[in-house]
Design a protein around this nucleic acid. Structure first.
Lengths: 160, 160
DNA sequence: GTGCGAATACTCGGATACCGCGTGTCCGAGTAAGTGAGG
DNA sequence: CCTCACTTACTCGGACACGCGGTATCCGAGTATTCGCAC
């Protein structure tokens, strides 16, 4: 039950791009340097964000990545799904049917597995909590506690 | 972000033990056979449940495992924590301090990382949803939809 | 018949291999910018 | 001076190794049962 490291990188990178805000793309090398991350691996993660429609990539010289939507339209759920994939954390393998379950009447399996249902309810709460928080919200909280960071980010990307 | 298979095994095994209910222990071999699971590996998982105080183990002949508490006092959160460990799924590595963060004033880092805070909020919702559901609740839901399973379980363990 | 002791069979518990997936890296395809010559 | 084609340098994108944690297994320590024997 460990979340991929890429999620943390992705959110921080998206946050930095939200701080820059202008339409100009930022190349992987700068994004990686701004958090001391391995550039090639960060690039791999960013490609997942492009496929998910969170980032736009511009090839060629002066290319790079920029937000594909407004920060308010990107939820943390979007980011987690983009990196981790859409599969639920708890995967029911229907072991209730195996072993002693094989000798139980079919009527026992008309409805979904109760164990799975309980776990999915909890997971739904998690997903809803993630979907309720946008990148804009995260930015607002960061700006409230550390208003200097937005300027630091813009400076790191040569914007001012 | 994939949960260990052992969680599913643990919940189903605890549920089966809740159906048996009498104080007599059930050995690993029977518990494994009742769901067609590898006995040795299931044993490993059950040991985690013993350490967490959810199960009692009785060594020697006619030994085995039995619930250490009432089913109503065992939450799904307890089970997940026992198998997966207490570490949070999202682990903040404070990458905000690295790279461009190093040139930011210390005042930026007085409060917790906003990214981490958001992820932890979502995770808390998940944990609360897990803690709100007890093994007794799962059993009640299973009995409602498949009332025959309790008897099947008792029979599988030679209880009647 | 009864009590005792040793042999026995069964169980948990931790130590030991295996393997898939996340982690990390590299190089090639493609594009925009820059440059120089020609009109 | 302006236009255009070529060169150049830079960027993304996917293909290629590595390492660690979950998966799976085995064997030894310990105990209740059981059997046999002596009284």
């Amino acid at each position: 039950m460990k979340m991929s490291q890429g999620v943390e990188w992705a959110v921080h990178t998206l946050l930095a791009l939200a701080w820059v805000d202008d339409g100009k793309p930022v190349p992987t090398a700068r994004l990686a340097a701004s958090h001391e991350l391995p550039p090639a691996y960060l690039n791999k993660q960013l490609q997942s964000l492009v496929k998910a429609g969170l980032l736009e990539s511009l090839p060629g010289a002066r290319g790079g990545f920029r937000l594909a939507r407004r920060a308010g339209d990107i939820t943390l759920m979007d980011v987690v799904t983009a990196i981790e994939g859409p599969a639920p954390a708890f995967q029911c393998t229907e072991i209730r049917r195996r072993g002693m379950g094989a000798s139980a009447p079919d009527s026992c399996f008309r409805t979904a597995c109760a164990v799975n249902a309980s776990m999915q309810r909890a997971e739904l709460a998690w997903r809803q909590a993630l979907a309720a928080q946008t990148l804009e919200d995260v930015r607002a909280e960061a700006d409230r506690h550390a208003p200097a960071m937005a300027g630091v980010a813009r400076q790191a990307y040569g914007r001012e």
